[in-house]
Computed example of a mutant assay.
Amino acid sequence: MAGIQKAKSEETQRRVLEAAVKAVEAGGLEAVQIRKIAADAGYSVGSVYKHYEDQDALVTAVDTVTLARIKAAMAAAVEGVSDPLEQLKALARAYLAFAQEHRNLWRTLFALKMAEGVPTPEIHVQELVDLLAFIARPLQQLEAGLNDDALAARTRTCFAALHGLVAISLEDRFVGLTEDTLDKEMMFLVERLAGRS
């Protein structure tokens, strides 16, 4: 009996999360409305709150799905690529492609700020660590002298720089790049960040 209840509970949680992901895909962070998501999933509002403490917890779960999808895109991008600089370029292009194709999920990933004192769920943290590891591995090959702390800092710097370029460009900011120059300048940035001129 306990096994059946557990399976039903897991199914409810899965369906609610699927409905939330679809809502974000369609309308961004503003579309995360518990009542509507509960109805779309076929459950009561109470069922949603049984699995997700509040709206922030549900958005965090959606963000974890988004990170896993970005990670899968990055894994596919570097499959069969052995040169570390080419790996970094492939990762940059995969990140841009994901942001372009899944703009609402990508925007939502960076839109939620956790309330003070609320820890980020461990699974979310692990997805972030795994994503950054894709960047760290080729960087380590290119700069073998970096210790662990320096490598972690360089990895975050590279991700932040690339994300900034992509964000400014995709949000049509004044200093953003148009699509025809974005790839070229992104490759320029990757080469400089990787210590190649």
Rank of each mutant, 00 (worst) to 15 (best):
L17P: 01
I135G: 01
Y95G: 14
S9A: 14
V24Y: 00
H163R: 15
A167F: 09
C158G: 06
L132Q: 07
D180E: 14
R173G: 02
D180P: 14
P138Y: 08
V16L: 10
D172G: 15
S197V: 06
G28D: 03
G3P: 01
I34R: 00
S197Y: 13
L88N: 02
A92L: 04
K50T: 12
H124F: 05
A153G: 07
F134L: 08
A72H: 12
D54T: 05
N104D: 11
G117P: 02
A7K: 11
L151N: 05
A160K: 07
H124A: 05
V45P: 00
C158E: 05
A23M: 06
N104V: 04
D149H: 05
V48M: 04
I34N: 00
R154S: 11
A115N: 13
A111T: 13
A38E: 15
R137I: 13
I37Y: 04
D183T: 02
K50L: 14
A57G: 12
R137G: 13
V16F: 04
A7Y: 08
N147H: 13
L182Y: 13
L182C: 09
Q140G: 06
D180I: 14
G164L: 11
R107H: 06
F188Y: 10
A152T: 09
C158Y: 10
D148P: 05
F174N: 03
G3M: 06
L177S: 07
F110N: 13
A61Y: 07
I168S: 12
Q87R: 12
L131W: 02
R103P: 08
D56K: 15
E25L: 06
D148I: 04
T120Y: 10
F110P: 06
Q100Y: 09
L193W: 03
E25M: 05
F134S: 05
A2T: 07
G27D: 00
A160E: 13
G27K: 00
A61R: 06
A152S: 10
D130I: 00
A76T: 15
P119D: 10
T120C: 06
Q140H: 06
A133N: 08
S47Q: 10
L182R: 13
D172C: 14
R103A: 14
S82M: 04
A161K: 02
V190H: 03
G27N: 03
R14V: 15
L17T: 07
R15P: 08
